[in-house]
C-alpha cells in the first residue's frame, strides 16, 4: 500500500465514522459538530483528488457557512426534543435493510463497468491552470455562461425566500 493509499484510507475512515455519528447521535449539536468533521474528511478527499479549488470551497462554504447556519438553527429551535427521547422513527429497521440492499445493488451494478478499477494517476496540474480553465469556462458564452447566471438567480431566490420566510415582520414590530 502506497503512502497516498494510506492517506486515502485514513481520511475515508474518518469521514465514514463521522457520518455514522451524525446519523446516530441523539444530541443535535454533537451531530452538527460531527458533520463538520465529516465535511473536513471530504475536503481532504478532494485534496487527494487534486481538486484544490473544491477542497478549499468545501471548507469555506460547507464548514464556514452551511455548518454555522445549521448550528444557529439548532440553537434557535432547541429545547424541543429532549436528549433522552429516541431520535429515530419506528421504521429504522426497514430503512437499514433497504440501505444495505441498495448498497449491494449499486456496487454490483457499477463494478460491471470496465473503467471501475482504473488507477487514478497524478494529473500534475501546474499552478493556476485548473482554476483558470474553470473560471474561463464559467463566463465563456460557448461554455457555461447560462448555467452560471441561472445559479445566480437560484441564489437570489434562496436569499429572498429565506429572508421572507424567516423574517416575521409582525412579531418584530410587536417587540
Amino acid at each position: 500500500m502506497s503512502v497516498q493509499q494510506l492517506f486515502f484510507v485514513v481520511f475515508a475512515l474518518i469521514t465514514i465514522f463521522s457520518a455514522l455519528m451524525v446519523v446516530s447521535l441523539r444530541n443535535l449539536l454533537h451531530s452538527a459538530l460531527w458533520l463538520i468533521m465529516a465535511l473536513l474528511g471530504v475536503a481532504s478527499i478532494f485534496a487527494i483528488l487534486e481538486a484544490s479549488f473544491f477542497a478549499a470551497v468545501q471548507i469555506l462554504v460547507y464548514i464556514g457557512a452551511i455548518a454555522i447556519l445549521i448550528i444557529f438553527a439548532v440553537m434557535l429551535t432547541h429545547n424541543i426534543m429532549s436528549v433522552a427521547e429516541t431520535q429515530t422513527n419506528r421504521s429504522w429497521g426497514i430503512a437499514l435493510v433497504m440501505v444495505v440492499i441498495i448498497f449491494f445493488i449499486i456496487i454490483t451494478q457499477i463494478s460491471t463497468w470496465p473503467g471501475f478499477n482504473t488507477r487514478l494517476q497524478a494529473l500534475n496540474i501546474p499552478g493556476q491552470d485548473a482554476v483558470l480553465a474553470f473560471g474561463t469556462g464559467l463566463v465563456d458564452p460557448q461554455g457555461f455562461a447560462l448555467p452560471f447566471e441561472t445559479a445566480s438567480v437560484l441564489l437570489l431566490a434562496a436569499l429572498l425566500g429565506g429572508v421572507f420566510i424567516a423574517f416575521d415582520q409582525r412579531r418584530e414590530k410587536k417587540s
Partner: peptide
C-alpha cells in the same frame, strides 16, 4: 495511484 473504485465505494 488510488483506484477509481475506492472513491465510488
Amino acid at each position: 495511484m488510488i483506484p477509481l473504485s475506492w472513491y465510488l465505494i
